[in-house]
Design a protein around this nucleic acid. Structure first.
Length: 400
RNA sequence: GCCCCGAUAGUUCAGAGGCCAAGAAUGCGGCCCUUUCACGGCCGUGACCCGGGUUCGAAUCCCGGUCGGGGCGCCA
């Protein structure tokens, strides 16, 4: 107990010196709780602590400083986070993460800030970092984007990543689709989408739900077969629960027919996996351990987890959701940027008015500036609202 | 209509019941350094969304509200 008295004195001195020579007894007591003081002991110790505080307060500031110098070694400091936060459940050398941009254009600020965080964790702990280009919607794939994304990633991640392209992995998705049907966790639905929306609203089962596994396998073949279902006539659905309290979770779609020519695969495939399905399959196959993504994917993550479970996977990657970056006066949407380029309002993807990495690289920003910015944001889930000017002032301060 | 999530200085973050009468970065004001600019150094400025509850003690836990964001696509 001698020890506690000494510590009380040290904390009293610290508090006193922080507040002009007068320590507050409550602060000292608070500190002592971190040093092993028990609630039950407070009553008996109170008088003693009060006495120490009064003694300290009666000393001159000079005297307090002198004494504190001698005692400051014995008190602990409250810890603060600097730099990268620590990644929960991370094992050295075994962290597997990914960044999954869609093949719709080059990378921009929003991509850089979420992707950098994943990159930095893999860099810190060791493991694998994948860049997986998501191009399973033939209607939203632009052939120039593959090369642009690759160049952006080479720059931002110093070429330390493994590149994957989803449309090159189609057989994998097909095999998982069959797996899900065989496990009675997916069915082919041939209702018009308006009709299905009604079922969702009314929490009613779609009639297609009651087909047998055998029938569903046949219907799935009819989706893949060009003499079978036509575009818009059938969709593969996940069998979740039409009474799920969250309407977004009720028998969501996994794959659909789209006959449009794919810029990379041509007319090779007619059935394309939807995002949640492709993501779940890839994350399982690649043994993803951690996923960091924007907050708008929160419900998607739930759906992906359902797919994991349906396939008998008990572990789901540890997941963080980041708030969205929002500019009051800056356009982040790839579609709008593309439109602006087409009408000649922007000179190209590297136009200085654009928040693309190619433009910022040209303007002298370094990858490390984005890393530091990402580190600063950490796992924060709140949306960020910036003025363009504010954002770049901050980014510049990280660019030194 | 239903389901999620968030809220700390102008901005971004720290904070996981007591070392918080709230810390950092950036901004802003001032001083110093520098021939000037930039860089750097020092000082100052400035915040826990609101209302209840639990507790000896709440930025932190619980309930209600407000505001903001996302989802309920054969988009990602």
């Amino acid at each position: 107990m001698k020890n506690l008295e000494k510590k009380a004195r040290a904390y009293a001195l610290k508090n006193s010196l922080s507040y002009g020579g007068k320590a507050s007894i409550n602060s000292v007591i608070s500190s002592l709780f971190h040093e092993g003081l028990k609630r039950e002991e407070l009553k008996e110790k109170f008088k003693e602590i009060e006495k120490i505080v009064n003694e300290v307060n009666s000393l001159s500031i000079e005297r307090q400083k002198e004494e504190f110098e001698k005692l400051k070694k014995i008190i602990s400091e409250r810890k603060k986070r600097v730099g990268l936060p620590s990644l929960p459940k991370a094992k050295k050398g075994k962290v597997i993460m990914r960044f999954a941009p869609s093949a719709s254009g080059p990378l921009h600020i929003g991509h850089a800030l979420t992707a950098s965080l994943s990159y930095l964790f893999v860099k810190k702990y060791g493991g694998k970092f994948y860049v997986r280009i998501e191009d399973t919607n033939p209607e939203n794939v632009f052939s120039d984007s593959y090369e642009m994304i690759k160049e952006d990633c080479d720059w931002l991640f110093k070429k330390k990543y493994i590149l994957l392209i989803q449309s090159d992995r189609m057989p994998l998705y097909y095999s998982y689709a069959e797996k899900l049907i065989k496990r009675n966790s997916a069915y082919v639905c041939s209702c018009p989408s308006e009709k299905f929306k009604e079922y969702v609203q009314e929490k009613r089962n779609c009639p297609c739900r009651s087909f047998s596994i055998k029938e569903n396998l046949q219907r799935w073949k009819n989706m893949l077969n060009e003499n079978g279902f036509n575009e818009g006539e059938a969709v593969l659905r996940f069998k979740s629960n039409m009474k799920d309290k969250n309407p977004a979770m009720r028998d969501f779609p996994l794959a659909r027919i789209n006959l449009q020519k794919h810029p990379r695969q041509g007319k090779k495939y007619r059935v394309w996996p939807l995002m949640n399905f492709a993501v779940a399959v890839d994350d399982i196959e690649l043994k993803m351990t951690h996923v960091i993504r924007a907050k708008d994917h929160r419900d998607n993550a739930k759906r992906q987890k359902m797919i994991y479970n349906a396939l008998g996977k008990k572990t789901f990657p540890w997941t963080a959701f980041l708030g969205r970056i929002h500019f009051r006066d800056f356009e982040l949407s790839t579609t709008k940027m593309r439109e602006g380029i087409v009408i000649g309002y922007f000179s190209g993807w590297d136009d200085e008015k654009l928040p693309t990495l190619i433009s910022l690289r040209k303007q002298g920003y370094k990858p490390e500036a984005f890393w530091k910015f990402a580190e600063r944001i950490g796992f924060s889930e709140s949306d960020k609202i910036f003025d363009k000017k504010e954002f770049f002032t901050l980014l510049k301060s990280f660019n030194k």
